[in-house]
């Protein structure tokens, strides 16, 4: 039992390191394709964290939607839109980094202190479970309007994307 817990903790830390490393690579990479690859690593790490948070379904959806759909769309955008000469980004100027890094570190410190000092009130009892059946019921009974609106939004997005790309033909 103890060995099992240690192995689980080690895998958890590996997933956290994978997520953080992927995020850093996505932001700091000079080549755009490396940036997309870092984003894919982050998606995989977050999918593993969803497993630890008790939802196999969301983990599979993360891999399917984020890693499959959005990753492919971003790779497509990088490879179609840009000529190879322009793929490498220009170097950012020094004073901008000097301004951006301390600002972001200060923002992270503020968030972290706020997280640490808050006393989270947990729910007195669970009225439901993590099963896929209850997710489906919530999606089709309680959140039916949001579910339908998401499908309309996706339809509008796809049709709008086609129209926007096609309107530049002349």
């Amino acid at each position: 039992m103890i060995v099992y817990q240690y192995v689980s903790e080690v895998f958890f830390f590996l997933l956290v390191v994978l997520t953080l490393f992927g995020g850093l690579l996505a932001v700091k990479a000079r080549v755009l394709m490396h940036s997309v690859l870092g984003l894919a690593v982050t998606f995989l790490g977050v999918a593993g964290l969803y497993l630890y948070l008790g939802s196999i379904f969301l983990s599979m959806m993360q891999i399917l939607i984020y890693l499959g759909a959005i990753g492919i769309v971003l790779v497509f955008g990088v490879m179609v839109g840009y000529t190879p000469r322009q793929v490498v980004e220009e170097k950012i100027r020094g004073e901008n980094v000097l301004l951006a890094v301390p600002t972001c570190l200060a923002g992270f410190a503020m968030l972290w202190i706020a997280i640490g000092r808050t006393e989270w009130a947990s729910a007195p009892e669970r009225i439901n479970d993590f099963a896929l059946k209850s997710v489906g019921k919530a999606l089709l009974y309680d959140f039916c309007l949001a579910f339908e609106l998401i499908s309309v939004l996706l339809l509008i997005a796809v049709v709008g994307a086609i129209i926007v790309v096609n309107s530049q033909e002349d």
């Binding site: 939802s55 969301l58 959806m61 009892e125 997710v135 939004l153 997005a157």
Partner: peptide, 22 residues
């Protein structure tokens, strides 16, 4: 108290992210 709600909200965030990327 209801663990189905957060999963539904995360699914909706994924749908919005897909539309935004397209």
């Amino acid at each position: 108290p209801d663990p189905a709600v957060g999963q539904v909200i995360t699914l909706i965030i994924m749908g919005i992210a897909a539309a935004e990327a397209a």
